[in-house]
């Protein structure tokens, strides 16, 4: 598969590159990878990383080594929505274990897995800076905080509705 940014995506990339001095376009790599991941299927196949390398005029390996370092970049296919549930100390003492167990039960998947219909992926993550609003998870750009079992139910219903409609 080959990837190409459309006009809007290309304009965004150019805006990102323009923030850095002449010749320092590699600095735009992290934002460019976010853009790439958001623009296509939510993950970074090799061909997509190669495309980014060509746009930023750097070697493909420079992209791979970065993509594999940062936890927000997915190197494998993921569901349409990723439930990234925080499991670090402050969330744990506020009941994240129960929430994680409940989501596993509701979606019938384990951490790292995706539901058969490809809608949800469950990922356990480390502190997201929402410790005072625990337990919490990130779904896309949004933080879902003060989670309870009821809230998890309604969040699942909410996202499922966007797919079936």
């Amino acid at each position: 598969m080959t990837y190409t940014f459309n006009e809007t995506q290309m304009a965004e990339l150019n805006r990102l590159v323009a923030r850095y001095p002449e010749g320092k376009q590699k600095s735009a790599l992290l934002p460019a990878l976010h853009l790439a991941q958001d623009s296509f299927d939510g993950w970074l196949p090799t061909e997509l990383m190669d495309y980014i390398a060509s746009l930023l005029k750097i070697e493909p390996i420079e992209v791979y080594e970065v993509a594999s370092f940062y936890s927000m970049f997915n190197l494998k296919p993921v569901g349409k929505f990723i439930f990234e549930v925080c499991q670090t100390g402050p969330c744990m003492i506020s009941g994240s274990d129960d929430i994680i167990a409940y989501i596993q039960e509701k979606l019938a998947i384990k951490p790292g897995e995706t539901t058969k219909d490809g809608v949800f992926t469950l990922k356990l993550v480390e502190c997201l800076g929402a410790c005072g609003y625990a337990p919490m998870m990130q779904v896309g750009k949004i933080f879902r905080e003060h989670l309870t079992k009821e809230k998890v139910d309604s969040i699942i219903t909410e996202y499922r509705a966007t797919v079936t409609n």
């Binding site: 320092k24 590699k26 600095s27 735009a28 790599l29 992290l30 990878l33 976010h34 930023l56 750097i58 420079e62 970065v66 370092f69 940062y70 936890s71 927000m72 970049f73 993550v125 480390e126 502190c127």
Partner: peptide, 19 residues
């Protein structure tokens, strides 16, 4: 893009350089 270590100032600078 998700890395606590990038809060350390020299790691942050590396990250800002796209590394």
């Amino acid at each position: 893009a998700g890395a606590y270590i990038c809060g350390e100032e020299t790691a942050l600078i590396e990250s800002l350089e796209g590394k």
